[in-house]
């Protein structure tokens, strides 16, 4: 098991570094002087020269890369050009919100998918099945930021069940936090939930046709044991494999969702940093999202190896 974890760990390194390298190259290779871009039109030549020196832009690209890599590994990301605080201190304040939101959305999506997908497969070709399948087709095509606006209209404006926007930290009460994060999580989870439901249904149909299910039934096991313990567990394996990919999509989705619901998360920080040309924060945000994703993928891989022992020995 340890060897397996070690191997997975090596494989996630590209996940962390490829986006960062792209950001590194973008800043250095994009047309125009990055220092001039950061400082804006009113900057004097001295200011630009000083910033160029501070950012190390006068070195050759190879040297810059080595210095940059060393800074990344030692988490020395510099100071925000806007907040003036070190980037390493700013990022964690925002990351918690995003991780909480994405986790709730992911759990919600998996729950809906496992239940709806299994149900759909068990009642194959019934009206319920057809409507679930149709809903998934619609769900895959709905833009989450638009769905979020519709949710706001229905649940916040018309029914007044939940707040329109705003964030309550978990420290102020778990229920208050839950209500502030319910609509964003639902909006964020809808597409992935639809994709996973489709997958769960198709894999459940496969499993239900397996001889071991017939055997279990022939032995007189109650149906809920056959389905719950034997069929659903096996059928959920393909769904677990895509959770990592789904988490990636969701972290991307948080950008628009956090803006709509005014949540102080990483996505919003990133967009604001881009607008302010606060490049150290942009780099830090990309790094944070890579790290979150890598950690999540590692956790998923381990869970995966636990529920499906065949994986470990490959």
């Amino acid at each position: 098991m340890l060897r397996y974890i070690g191997k997975r760990f090596l494989l996630i390194l590209p996940t962390i570094f490829v986006p960062l390298i792209m950001v590194f190259l973008l800043l250095r290779l994009s047309p125009g002087d990055p220092a001039g871009m950061i400082l804006g039109d009113q900057a004097t030549a001295e200011q630009i020269a000083a910033l160029r020196a501070e950012l190390g832009l006068n070195e050759p690209l190879g040297v810059q890369f080595v210095i940059w890599l060393k800074n990344i590994v030692t988490l020395d990301l510099g100071n925000s050009l806007f907040f003036r605080d070190p980037v390493v201190e700013i990022i964690p304040r925002y990351a918690g919100v995003t991780v909480g939101l994405a986790t709730i959305a992911l759990v919600l999506a998996i729950l809906i998918a496992v239940i709806a997908g299994s149900f759909s497969a068990l009642k194959r070709n019934s009206i319920v099945d057809r409507s679930i399948v149709t809903t998934t087709v619609l769900g895959i095509s709905v833009p989450e930021f638009w769905f979020a606006l519709i949710l706001v209209f229905v649940f916040a404006v018309t029914l007044r069940w939940l707040p329109v926007a705003g964030y309550t930290p978990p420290s102020a009460g778990i229920i208050a936090w839950g209500t502030s994060i319910a609509l964003p999580a639902l909006a964020l989870g809808i597409r992935q939930s639809a994709l996973m439901t489709r997958m769960m249904r198709s894999s459940m149909l496969d499993v239900l046709g397996e001889p071991y299910i017939t055997t279990a039934r022939a032995q007189g096991l109650p149906e809920h044991v056959v389905i719950g313990r034997y069929a659903m567990k096996t059928a959920a394996i393909p769904v677990v494999t895509v959770v990592g990919l789904s988490a990636g999509y969701m972290l991307g989705g948080t950008v628009a969702i956090e803006i709509i619901f005014a949540l102080p998360g990483l996505g919003r920080l990133l967009v604001e940093a881009v607008a302010r040309r606060d490049f150290p924060v942009v780099e830090g945000g990309v790094l944070a999202i890579s790290l979150i994703l890598a950690a999540l993928n590692l956790i998923i891989d381990i869970i995966y190896a636990i529920i499906d022992p065949r994986i470990r020995y490959k």
């Binding site: 490829v18 986006p19 990636g248 972290l251 990133l270 990309v286």
Partner: peptide, 14 residues
């Protein structure tokens, strides 16, 4: 692999 797992929107935003 690195690009796939990373959210496209975030990269495009940057």
């Amino acid at each position: 692999d690195g690009l796939m797992s990373f959210p496209a929107i975030v990269l495009a935003t940057a």
